[in-house]
Design a binder for these strands. Structure first.
Lengths: 251, 251
DNA sequence: CAAACACTTCGGCGAAGATCGTAGTGTTTC
DNA sequence: GAAACACTACGATCTTCGCCGAAGTGTTTG
């Protein structure tokens, strides 16, 4: 099998702390400039430039020139998927090996992406809002309809907290589902609302979100996304997690 | 986020060609000795010893001493999952980025694992055989019932080809499905039978298996596993693959 | 008990590559 | 047009780490 050398090449790229930091920073789908990435990874701009060139050449990053700066993002959800694989293995380490894929599964189910929700649930919510014509989405933009505004008003979601300057509503490609969820002010408002009403809560030291029993009921009632929610019929950690509030598994 | 350094540590381990070769060789769930791994990765035994120690310390490999030799295998399905992530990214490289997860998807659907079948289909077959009490499975062993023997006789599967010394029937954890499929002589006989009757065929340069139209029909009729098989309703590469024999996508 | 075997430890060699200072190109701002 | 800015290219230094020869420990075989 000659697959060994190939994966070594990619792994070696990720194997440098500086480059790994850059990739981690881009995990949530953001696009960042070379300078920002240099700062985040803790190396000089010259060094970062070299690293970014290598990552782009290898097809791990996609670049876009705008003006005098270059914006980098992960080249595809595949790359994010690979990084998540590494994260899961890395976080467990030598200790307690058994059943630790729970972390990964929980992440895929519901997590934060910057300031909004991602994962199966977030994609289902976006689907539902589009299906009901509350939101219009295309490749790189989104728009709230009048019906959508009424819907959120009735729900008590405050869409005005966002600063004037930020994008109001946009799609954000979900790397575990390979389909878009909602970002922008609307996405942030939904997450804020869900946290305030105890539909979900943060899991310590993780981007994963725990869906509470209240959340299961309310998300189903509000968005009609039973399919994406844990149920009694759904065996496995997600279901057992959501049955009791206290059962927080370190991820 | 301090996840950067952690994933770098793991990635750096995989980033060496020698170690990557070792891990690749173990991808299908086999257990190999240190000497075998040294030969397969093309380094001297001393070097291999060091590499294996590092991989074990990091929790990527599990070791078992038996007599004067040490048997290594991947520590968990998580590791295999991570390696697959790297493989998928590595095989695509800079070129044609779009829709290349087909390879991974095909692998998850049906592939060989040593000399038997793995993937969704294999897990479904194992489920069905257990459900019908043709086979009894527990953690680390399996047993063919009398009813099971009759079933395979009627089907024309020859279970006697296996050498006397090999394990007759045992479960083998499927890393893409996280549930067991059948290994041992019975597992091998099923794959042999499927290949001889053109239910599946090897895809060139890959461990992936292509389920032929005949296979779709016969596997459904024989094992009642329609759910795991590609159908017309199932969009995506697997369905398009199975519709015509000629449509072999390089993986 | 000796010999063969499987594996590990030690030590020195050598190549790969990460780092940053200096200097350069292209872009924006004033 | 000059200055500030974002990024890139080159080169010297230095650390890291893979590599294998030699020697050592534990196990099996005859």
């Amino acid at each position: 099998m000659d697959t060994g050398p190939k994966i070594a090449q990619v792994a070696a790229l990720v194997g440098d702390p500086g480059r790994a930091n850059m990739l981690s920073a881009l995990m949530d789908g953001r696009t960042l400039t070379a300078t920002e990435l240099a700062y985040l990874s803790g190396v000089a701009p010259q060094t970062a430039s070299g690293h970014l060139a290598k990552l782009s050449d290898a097809g791990l990053l996609a670049v876009e020139r705008r003006g005098r700066r270059r914006y980098f993002r992960l080249a595809s959800p595949l790359v994010a998927r690979m990084l998540e694989g590494l994260m899961v293995v890395a976080q467990e380490g030598p200790a307690r090996q058994r059943n630790l894929w729970r972390g990964g599964e929980t992440l895929r189910h519901a997590r934060t992406c910057y300031d909004h929700m991602a994962g199966r649930i977030a994609v289902a919510i976006a689907d539902r809002l589009v299906q009901q014509s509350f939101i219009l989405l295309d490749e790189d933009g989104g728009q709230l309809t009048d019906a959508g505004r009424s819907f959120f008003d009735a729900l008590g979601v405050d869409l005005c907290l966002a600063s004037k300057r930020r994008v109001f509503c946009r799609p954000c490609l979900d790397w575990s589902e390979r389909r878009p969820h909602l970002a922008g002010a609307v996405g942030a408002a939904i997450l804020r609302h869900a946290l305030e009403h105890d539909w979900v809560e943060h899991i310590r030291d993780s981007r994963a979100l725990l869906v509470t029993p209240v959340g299961v009921r309310e998300l189903a009632a509000t968005f009609g996304i039973e399919g994406a929610l844990p149920t009694d019929a759904c065996k496995g950690p997600v279901a057992s997690l959501s049955r009791g509030r206290a059962a927080v598994i370190p991820v």
